[in-house]
Amino acid sequence: MGKRLNLTKTPALVSRRSVLAGSLVLGAGAMLPACKPIMSGLLTGADAHPGDYPTVRAVEFMGRYIAKRTGGRLGIKVFAGGQLGNETDTLEITSFGGIDLNRINFAPLNSFEPMTLPFSLPFIFDSVSHMRRVVDSEVGDAVLASLEPHKLIGLCIYDSGARSFYNARRPITVPADMKGLKIRVPASDLYIAMVNALGANAVPIPFSEIYQSLAQGVIDGAENNWPTFVSERHYEVAKYLSLTQHLLTPETLVMSKDSWDRLQPADQALMREAAKASVIEMRRLWDIRVAEAKATVAASRVEVNEVETQPFAELMRPVWDQFITTPAQKRVVQRILEMKEG
């Protein structure tokens, strides 16, 4: 038996479990059998991103791909916008087979699988092309394979963009500019350590509360990618965007191992083929989305400044040492660094 995820259970999760157990279907109204092979029907997919987000559209592309190759025998129905819960909730549900497919950020995976941590290190990647080269290599394959003992099959790795700091107080050009700033971070030990190491004060608050917290001065700033900065309207209340590009942490599409094991071998191969094809589509859509976001910001009153990242990166050594502790993790880090351009 594989290991189950040890995530905190909440009343909301129990409620969603009950709903999923009674309502997820396979094909035309048939209840999802826990022990029978998946021969035909719709696989369920979860994504916390909105319906027009590149990862959602990429998994929908994957659904059309497998539908075409199977003559409509298999397909994918994506529940976007967090309809099935937040990422922590859906990750656990996926691990025991309540959801077939799940697009997930690497941050929730860090808490139980050490091999996912190298991809989440600040300044580990020096460009989008570097990140893509790494995740497309044997390094990406090894990280995906590390999820199987947790009842998850890693199918592919998607982009999540370059994350930079934005705030309502001042431009950030050197680490000293971050001193005293209250910066929102996800509830992640690594993110908290990173921001505190840069001299700011990490404030873990829910993603949905960032806009209001910025507007009311509860926080001074946050950090995220170009599309999120625009789509969540954070650029309306944070007038300084500093291109630190401190994180290029990717995201991944996982499948429940229970669901995977019930697929025929030929369909398993098709799922991997479709997932690989969906990465190309996701990157095409992502690059368009980034260009659109940059154009929106350029037409706004936001002040954007370039940043010499080396002084910031030098402050991350204690953070790397805190989270990279095993020989296997260190080998992955070394391989990533070896694959930098130049």
Rank of each mutant, 00 (worst) to 15 (best):
G2A: 12
S137A: 11
Q83G: 10
Q245V: 07
N305Q: 13
G72A: 11
A269L: 10
A215P: 06
T88Y: 12
V218A: 13
R283P: 02
L117W: 12
A168L: 07
N305H: 07
I104S: 00
I104W: 03
E251D: 13
S127G: 03
S15G: 12
D258T: 12
P204E: 05
G97I: 07
A142I: 06
E303F: 11
M131G: 07
T10A: 08
A21G: 13
V25Y: 10
K294H: 04
K68H: 12
Q310Y: 03
T244V: 01
L24W: 04
N110S: 12
L84Q: 10
S188P: 00
P175V: 00
L121W: 00
F79S: 12
Q264T: 09
P227Q: 02
M316H: 11
D177K: 01
K276L: 11
G72I: 04
L270C: 05
L5A: 12
R64K: 15
D220S: 08
L253M: 14
S278K: 04
R317T: 06
A197Y: 00
G199P: 00
S160I: 01
Y65T: 08
D141S: 14
Y240L: 03
V139A: 07
N224M: 13
L152D: 08
E236N: 08
P33E: 03
F312P: 03
D89P: 06
T249R: 09
W226L: 04
E251P: 01
C156H: 05
G71K: 03
A142Q: 11
L20S: 00
I192G: 05
S18V: 14
L32M: 14
V143M: 09
G98L: 11
S231T: 13
L285R: 10
I157Q: 05
V174E: 13
I280Q: 10
T88W: 12
V185L: 04
V307W: 01
L24C: 07
N224Y: 10
K77P: 09
G51V: 05
P149E: 08
L190F: 06
K36F: 13
P227T: 04
N225A: 15
F112Y: 10
L248T: 06
V185A: 01
S146V: 08
P175W: 00
V56R: 07
S95F: 01
